[in-house]
Design a protein around this nucleic acid. Structure first.
Lengths: 134, 134
DNA sequence: TTGTACTGTAACAAAAACAATTACAGATGA
DNA sequence: TCATCTGTAATTGTTTTTGTTACAGTACAA
């Protein structure tokens, strides 16, 4: 995960919670995150599919939280944006070698354990708590 | 972390433990990992600095573990190869916005907690245990 | 003392991932 | 019917990551 999607998603969701009740435009959000409005809309498109954000099109439209911030766990945000494995890619090792043949399977198990512990930690936090620190 | 360094490092170290006593050449290791020998030497150069691997130059030379596999924790390997933040980059948000001004600080705290939980999990495993599965 | 087989490193090239930009169709309210 | 907004695709630019080549230096062995 060497991109800024997790930070961007939390930023967007935090803004929406922080300005609760208001509809925020992609341009306004982009101004705070310091990214292009189209990128913000793209990222939000994903967060909409997952039920975190709703929107209204047209004049006066914009984005708002689709559910209470207490019900949005940071672990869910992590899962929403993750595109690659936490600990990185595998190689394509040589199957003629005992180690090469089995290592990816062994890594699978390890990565699963590691990610689970991370998720367990993120589950302890919800968006409301996170935003309360601002 | 969208690279294969962790997988590569574990693979190399596993091979060295698995062939305990033998010196392995970068070419042999490269054949198992399926990477270029120069890449293997580059990665090993890092693992040498950290005291996991030792080497002998010249004819008949090669690489071997510099300490017992029980004493190499997977958390240490993770720390050896990590180059970017576990949960990804930050943005450069707008300091004129309350949320923008503080979010990276808040994320710092969160990322630290999350990474700690991952490290705690990886600490439970050492190289010997990992290799015993092959 | 010379040939061979290695490591160690740097420099460069190629490929993949990521971010940024532009454009425009469609929705909506004034 | 105009202005303002979302939704999305297409394109380009930038950075990160990987791969390759080359060669100096070390060490053993004949």
């Amino acid at each position: 995960m060497n991109n800024a999607k997790f930070a961007t998603a939390i930023h967007i969701l935090s803004l929406l919670e922080y300005s609760k009740g208001e509809r925020l435009s992609s341009e306004y959000i982009a101004g705070s995150v310091n990214l292009n409005p189209a990128l913000i809309r793209k990222e939000i498109s994903n967060l909409k599919k997952l039920g975190f954000i709703a929107s209204k099109e047209g004049n006066g439209g914009g984005f708002y939280l689709a559910k209470p911030a207490e019900q949005i766990l940071l672990s869910e945000i992590y899962e929403a944006v993750k595109s690659v494995q936490l600990l990185g890619r595998y190689n394509k090792p040589n199957p003629a070698c005992t180690v090469g043949r089995q290592i990816n399977g062994n890594l699978d198990q390890l990565y699963a354990d590691a990610e689970l512990s991370l998720i367990k930690e993120l589950e302890k936090h919800n968006l409301k708590d996170f935003v309360s620190k601002f």
